[in-house]
C-alpha cells in the first residue's frame, strides 16, 4: 500500500470512465428498445434519469411493450431493484455519508458503483472514490447513451422488421449471463423461465414474470443458511 493515496486514485478513475463507456453502450440499446416498445423519447429519458437501474428499466419497458399493464411493469421493476437497497446497506458504513450526500449517493447505488467500491475497499478513501467516480461516470454516459438510442429508434419504423423484438430478450440474457456463476444460479434461472412459460397461456401478460419471483423467495428461504 502506498502512502500517496492521491496518486493511486488515478487508475480507479480510469476504470470508472471505462465502465461508464461500456454502460453507455447498454444505454444506447435501452433507449432504442424502450422507444421500440412504445414509450416516447421523453419517457425513456425520464427512466434513465430517475430510475437509473438498468435491469428494472429494461423490465419496465419490456412488460409494458408486451401488454402486461402498468401495475405488473412497476412491480417487476421494483422487485428487480430491491438488490440496490441491499447494496446501499452494504456500502453505507464505508461511504459514511451525512446530510444531502445520502440522497445523491442513493441514486448512484447500482451494480457497477457498488462492485467498484467493494473492489477497492482496502482503504475507505479509495472505496469512496471508486463509488463516486463510477456512479457519476455511469450516470452521465448511461443517460447520453439513452438519448442517442431513443432518438435513433424514433427515426426508424417497425421494430419487428429491424429485429428489435429479438434485441429485447438478448438484452435480458446479457444482464442475466454474468449472474449465472454456479449451479444454484442455473437452477433458479431454469425455474424462473419454466414458471414464466407455463403461466404465459394461463394468466394475463406481466403475471408470469412476477410469479417467477416466487422461485427466488422459495430458493432464498431454502438456502438462507448457505450464503
Amino acid at each position: 500500500m502506498t502512502n500517496t493515496p492521491e496518486g493511486s486514485k488515478r487508475p480507479i478513475t480510469t476504470s470508472a470512465i471505462g465502465i461508464g463507456l461500456a454502460t453507455g453502450a447498454y444505454g444506447l440499446s435501452f433507449g432504442a428498445i424502450s422507444v421500440a416498445s412504445g414509450l416516447s423519447a421523453l419517457q425513456t429519458q425520464t427512466l434513465s434519469l430517475l430510475m437509473f437501474t438498468g435491469a428494472s428499466q429494461f423490465a419496465l419497458v419490456g412488460v409494458l411493450g408486451a401488454g402486461g399493464g402498468a401495475i405488473a411493469a412497476v412491480l417487476t421493476a421494483w422487485l428487480l431493484g430491491a438488490r440496490n437497497g441491499l447494496y446501499a446497506l452494504h456500502i453505507a458504513p464505508t461511504l459514511n455519508l451525512r446530510g444531502l450526500l445520502k440522497p445523491v449517493a442513493a441514486q448512484l447505488t447500482i451494480d457497477e458503483s457498488t462492485a467498484m467500491s467493494i473492489a477497492h475497499d482496502h482503504t475507505a478513501t479509495h472505496s469512496r472514490h471508486a463509488f463516486w467516480a463510477t456512479g457519476i461516470s455511469v450516470y452521465i454516459l448511461w443517460n447520453i447513451g439513452t438519448l442517442l438510442g431513443a432518438l435513433g429508434a424514433s427515426a426508424i419504423g417497425d421494430p419487428a422488421v429491424l429485429g428489435l423484438d429479438a434485441a429485447i430478450p438478448a438484452g435480458f440474457l446479457a444482464l442475466l449471463w454474468p449472474r449465472l456463476r454456479d449451479r444454484t444460479a442455473w437452477a433458479i434461472a431454469a425455474g424462473g423461465a419454466t414458471v414464466a412459460l407455463v403461466l404465459t397461456p394461463l394468466t394475463r401478460s406481466g403475471v408470469p414474470v412476477l410469479a417467477s419471483a416466487l422461485i427466488a423467495v422459495f430458493a432464498g428461504y431454502r438456502l438462507r443458511d448457505r450464503t
Binding site: T76, L80, A82, A189, L223
Partner: peptide, 18 residues
Amino acid sequence: SVAALLPIAMLSALVAVQ
C-alpha cells in the same frame, strides 16, 4: 439471499417470455 436471487429468477423469466 432472496434479494440476490430475485434478479436471476426474474431476468431468466423475462428472457423466456420475451
